[in-house]
Design a protein around this nucleic acid. Sequence first.
DNA 1: AATGAATGAGCCTTCATTCAT
DNA 2: TATGAATGAAGGCTCATTCAT
Lengths: 224, 224, 224, 224
Amino acid sequence: MTNRARTPRPRRSSQTRAGAGPPKRDALLDAAAQVFAERGFFAAQVAEIARRAGLAAGTVYLYFKNKDDLLLSLFNRTMDAAIADGRDLLTSVADPSARLRRFAELHLGRLGRDQHLAIVFQVELRQSTKFMAEFSATRLREYLGLIRDTIALGQARGDFRTDLSPTLAAKLLFGALDEMATNWILSKRTYALEADAARVVDVFIHGVQRQPSAASGVIRLTRP
Amino acid sequence: MTNRARTPRPRRSSQTRAGAGPPKRDALLDAAAQVFAERGFFAAQVAEIARRAGLAAGTVYLYFKNKDDLLLSLFNRTMDAAIADGRDLLTSVADPSARLRRFAELHLGRLGRDQHLAIVFQVELRQSTKFMAEFSATRLREYLGLIRDTIALGQARGDFRTDLSPTLAAKLLFGALDEMATNWILSKRTYALEADAARVVDVFIHGVQRQPSAASGVIRLTRP
Amino acid sequence: MTNRARTPRPRRSSQTRAGAGPPKRDALLDAAAQVFAERGFFAAQVAEIARRAGLAAGTVYLYFKNKDDLLLSLFNRTMDAAIADGRDLLTSVADPSARLRRFAELHLGRLGRDQHLAIVFQVELRQSTKFMAEFSATRLREYLGLIRDTIALGQARGDFRTDLSPTLAAKLLFGALDEMATNWILSKRTYALEADAARVVDVFIHGVQRQPSAASGVIRLTRP
Amino acid sequence: MTNRARTPRPRRSSQTRAGAGPPKRDALLDAAAQVFAERGFFAAQVAEIARRAGLAAGTVYLYFKNKDDLLLSLFNRTMDAAIADGRDLLTSVADPSARLRRFAELHLGRLGRDQHLAIVFQVELRQSTKFMAEFSATRLREYLGLIRDTIALGQARGDFRTDLSPTLAAKLLFGALDEMATNWILSKRTYALEADAARVVDVFIHGVQRQPSAASGVIRLTRP
DNA sequence: AATGAATGAGCCTTCATTCAT
DNA sequence: TATGAATGAAGGCTCATTCAT
């Protein structure tokens, strides 16, 4: 699915940041993240990206259809990894609340660790409705789906209120995390973004929790 | 603060959409919203905006410093109105929860009513860190301040948990509402955006509410 | 019909070379003829054409759609004049043979007088089947039509053989003249091109003449 | 003269279209004719030509100096064959008129049989003065020389008028045939090109014939 | 205040050609 | 011989902005 021009798709072993494709392709994506973050997508020059990757300008077009495709592919490479990480939680963390907390930590941790990537995701990727529609239609939907399913699981288990659409709740959580990331970038990144995860999820869990009264406590005790 | 070149600032009576300044200036801003929404900020041509306002290209520069200023001024005109509306709530709605609910309704209602404006706010305004830094530094900070103060009031009154930073809680609510707006745009606006307000605020209020004591539990029990 | 972008079509008074349109448009076409002839269409740079016309590069695009349109418009401007000249002959020269002779003189005279134009017409205009199809479909067909009609007139008057299609004969004459022009260019223009006109038409007339025997001579005598 | 890089010139046995050189070289020329005709010389990609010949892009440069050389070599290969065919007529057809007729048939027959070749010769080869000068200086001069000599022979034998330069007459005939070929291409090749040969030569012979004496008149009368 | 013709900086992309294998 | 990944030069075109009227 990751858009790739002319180069045969390599067998993908793990979804770590720079190990997902041919080395030159990955080097170009890394360089693109840097330059997009520093100059902005429009001001970024393809030739500059190539130079930072140690390649000639024309080489970019052996791996990517055009400049847009560079941004799109950066999104895809990152989302592939994020979704893979998210899927891992499905099996490794059974409790819905704990899973959401971990999900949020991974989300903000990923962005907080790579400031270039964070800028690209929080700013540059929102260039146009065209881009956004493309993004949200595929990978982002899948990513949100992981949150939604966890919420639905919490509802099924009786942990979460059932008078809420899991889709709406998922968007709500995502939107809150997204805002934390954007604010962090605009604050010049003077604090640890990942720490926001716990705070946000805490409010969210409270908000979606089933009657946290004594009565509800009893109910939960009956269901480990 | 609204950036205006050469034109004297009119005494602002009401903050309705097109009645805030000289008629040609407002016509240009209205046209800009349309064209930015339809084509995107970069693809939008200044000459096209002028044409839709029934003016010549050069005339734009009698009212605005440059193309950026057009977007910036559109933001400011809208935020002036939004902040004024928000301030009204400070006196008209005393209960923090009710005020937040009303705030959210106004927020999503405003965007849901004007799709061009919604696209400009949810997409075009996020083009660059430059824009975003400029926005969040002024009007947006003020706007978030209204939410933050209401939350702080709720904490002071004992309605809301005090183990949360009001600033963080305000961003969380704003982020959640923002995501609703963005999703609505990408969904091609097939449903009423404003209806999301109640749902989001409901979760939020639950989330920030003071530890459900027995009393509150009782109250809630009486209200299924 | 002459393709013109954005600029209102001026009332056309005469069809002389550089007086057919707005002065800047004509200056650009004159400059284009020079540069196309000197460098060839592909190697010619739009900026160089603009510079020679004393204008900025962008100005070209106020008068022409693109680089192709520059070549196309040069063709059209010249053909407009050539066709107008040809039409004048319809009334000013009654005798078919004499008219063909005059037509050929005008044709080669026009090219022989303007070497840049000659190169553009004999070489640059033959760039591609796309161009050629476009040319021959419109103005060139009209131009050939003038020759064809004169030949048909000669046939009707009994001067020319009637066992020949006037269309084929017209193409034959045009092809012969065309070859003279091309050869002249490749010879570095060391002789007077116009002088070839009489020689070519002489052979052509002999070739299409009705029985040039005594008998046919009698016939012609009966028709002044 | 055929420009060949690194490949030893093979002893040329016959001049048929694809049997003149090393098989891969010929395959590349055949592919070049196709691609040049379909896309035009400039739009044609060397890699596409190689692909159609079943070879890699780099291999083209083992057989040809550059892209120009591909076009030039195509011209030379074809002209070698055409000149060889023309030379055969010198011995096989003694009568100048008959020889010219046969020459024209071969000329148009060759183009009429291979539409790709026709487009290359009538359109792509006329791209630039550089190409044209190169062509007309060598093979084309030789080809025209065959016509010119035949006309001179006719003059010497008393068949043709002697008040005409054989060179001019040769160009005239060539130009007329050339125009037939070009028209045929632009007409989308809906009729048999070769049939034009007889018609054109008929007019030409009439045109260059010695003053129709009584005798020739008689001869003609006997041959309607 | 308004016009709109003119300006000119700026860059993505193509593709012929090379060369290490 | 043959390959094909890599190179890198080169320019058409757009459009925000200016300014003479």
